[in-house]
Each structure stands twice: as C-alpha cells, then as structure tokens.
Computed example of a mutant assay.
Amino acid sequence: MAFKVIKPGLLALLQDLGRHGHQSIGLTTGGPMDEVAFRWANALLDNTPNAAQIEITFGMLSLEAQADTSIAITGADLGATLNGKSIMPWQTYPMRKGDLLAFHQPIWGLRAYLAVKGGFLCEPILGSVATVLREKIGGLTGKGDKLQKGDVLTYPTGLSHQQRSVPRRAIPNYGLKEIAVILGYQYQSFSPLERAHFFSSDYGISSNSDRMGYRLEGNAINSATKGIISEGIAYGAIQIPKDGQPIVLLRDRQTIGGYPKIGCVTRISGSILAQQKPGDVIQFTPITVDQAERERCLHMARLAQWR
C-alpha cells in the first residue's frame, strides 16, 4: 500500500544513493546529503543499501499510513511524532493503517531520513529515483518534483516489524564542528599564509546554501590562480571563487567548474556538514587520503557487521 502526504513540509525529496555514470552529459549524481544516516536507515530494516527513502529538510511533513508497515528514522531530530506521541530518530517503529507520522521543527540537525520496509516503490530514471530539482529529474513524478500534498508513496506490504536501534557509538555527532578535508592538487596555488588562514578560521554557513553547495562566510582566501580551465567537479570539492569565500560542492553540484579548489571534504564529514544550519559555524582540518579511506572503511565495515 502507501503513505499519503497530508502536509508536504518545506522540502521532502525521494532519494536513493544517486544517479551515477551520467556526469559526461551534464547530469549530477543527486542522492542523500547525509549518506551515513541514509545507509543506517536501510540497514535497520534489512533493506538493500540503495532502497529509496524520503529526505526531510527542516521538517513540517505529515504522512498517513494506508497499510501496516515498519519504518526507520535516522539523521536529525525534527521533533517527529507518531499519532501525536514523540519518537526519537535512529530506530525503527511499527506503523498501522491510519497512523499519522509527523515531523515538526529541528531540535538538532537539519535533515532526517525516513525509510520504509522494502523501500518506497518508484520508477527510476536513468537507473535512479534520486530527486534533483534543478535538473528536473527523478522523484515520484520523474520530473524532479518535491513531495506535494496528496502524493501517494507506495511500499511493499505484509512485512513484519522488528524493533531495532543504531548502536550509540555509530550515531554521528552532529555537534562536531571540525570538517575533514583532503588537500587538492591545486592546493599549491594557495600561499602558506592563505592555507594557514583557511585551516585556522571559523566559517559560518550562509543562508544562500542548498543541496548544490554550502556557501561559507568568513576569512577570505586568495589564490595565485584566479581561474582555471573548467574541469569535472568531485563531491565535496571546496571551490574558492573571486570573492575568496569558500563553497563546498555537494550532492546536486554542477558537473564542471573553473575556480581553483583548495581541497575536498570527505564523505563522512560531508554528512556532518549537511546537518549544519545557516548561521552554524564550522572549521576545516586537513587529513590524508589514507586517513579518509580508513574512516570510510571503518564505517562500511561497521554497517556490514551490524547487518
């Protein structure tokens, strides 16, 4: 059966792990801003890692269950309630026909993930259901639309519920303000003084931030190279435009860009960054590729072992 959307909230999007292999034709990957939370939500329900979920930004979403199912909520605490009773993220809950699930405003974090047993059923476009508003692709309609009042999100029925929760040590610390950065190959175009400024400065999250990228406000960083030939953009790339204010490019980033890049945020730290709200303050810290790989392998091994 399905969930019926009673209130669509500010921004609720169907997402899977992304649309890969099409950047050569200008299509970005999309996918969950907080990949760690997304993967744990599917693990809690024994779903496949790529099963479609709803990414809920800021909250204000209400859904009515049309049939019994089991759900998992991870990511931010958006003050979720089930039939008016408060529930916490990072665990599973049974839902019965007629139950009302609502997300309110952030208590901590910014984005929550709602997974359903078996995953939401939606026709993929170019191999993915990931919603990218800017490119008008994916989602429930296939045209990149966010969820609307009256939308019906189907899911498999007749599946039993198991009460589960994510181990406390595996839950990310969204209060962590240090964002890990792998140095980029254009790092040398920044003077030692500019590099020191970058890694010792506080940066505020601009209100002009979205799924495409987080614009930062703080100490301006200058590069000896004012522009480069446009090239492919990796997830987490930190561009330094002419005004010197860094931009961290995320899931809905453009596929090419011509600004120098001082480094690249790791996927694990990218998940932490995606939970920061406008006005929150972060700092960058450098790590090696080996350190980033170990961090990623540890996370994936913990998931696999838990499954």
Rank of each mutant, 00 (worst) to 15 (best):
T266M: 10
Q23V: 00
M60P: 05
V132E: 01
L14D: 07
S230A: 03
V281E: 03
R294I: 09
C122K: 09
E231L: 00
G258Y: 00
D16E: 06
L13C: 14
L45S: 07
I125A: 05
Y174G: 02
Q291H: 08
N47W: 08
E135R: 01
Q53W: 02
L78W: 02
I272Y: 08
G227Q: 00
S209V: 01
C264Q: 14
A274N: 08
G9N: 06
S201M: 04
G139H: 03
R134Y: 13
G144V: 07
G98V: 15
L249I: 06
V116M: 07
T141C: 04
S201Q: 04
A196L: 13
L82G: 03
I268H: 10
D46C: 11
Q148R: 15
Q186G: 04
G258D: 02
G184F: 01
I137T: 05
H104P: 09
R19F: 02
K97W: 08
W306V: 11
Q239V: 01
A196W: 13
I71G: 04
I205T: 03
I233H: 00
W108E: 06
G244N: 09
R96F: 12
C122V: 15
A180R: 12
K226I: 00
V166R: 04
F103A: 05
G30S: 12
L140P: 12
Y259F: 09
Q23F: 00
G236F: 00
W108Y: 09
G84W: 06
G119W: 13
N42C: 03
G138L: 04
G142V: 08
W306C: 11
A112Y: 03
E293Y: 13
G98F: 10
Y155P: 14
I282V: 12
P172W: 02
Q162N: 13
N208F: 07
I6A: 04
Q15M: 06
N173I: 08
N83D: 11
L44G: 04
A65D: 09
T69R: 01
E194K: 00
L45V: 12
G158Y: 13
Q245L: 14
Q105T: 15
I56P: 07
T255F: 01
P241G: 03
Q53R: 06
G21C: 03
I229N: 01
P49C: 10
A274W: 06
A115S: 15
A180L: 06
R134F: 11
G30W: 00
S207A: 09
I107G: 04
G109K: 00
F38S: 02
R164Q: 14
N208Q: 10
F199N: 05
Q23H: 03
P286F: 07
V5W: 05
Y235D: 11
P124W: 02
Q275S: 07
Y155V: 13
G144S: 05
T225H: 00
N47C: 08
R307L: 14
Q275D: 13
F103W: 14
Q105R: 14
T141R: 07
S230T: 00
T57E: 07
K146M: 14
K85L: 10
G118F: 12
I229R: 00
A2P: 11
K7C: 10
M88T: 14
L11D: 10
F190W: 03
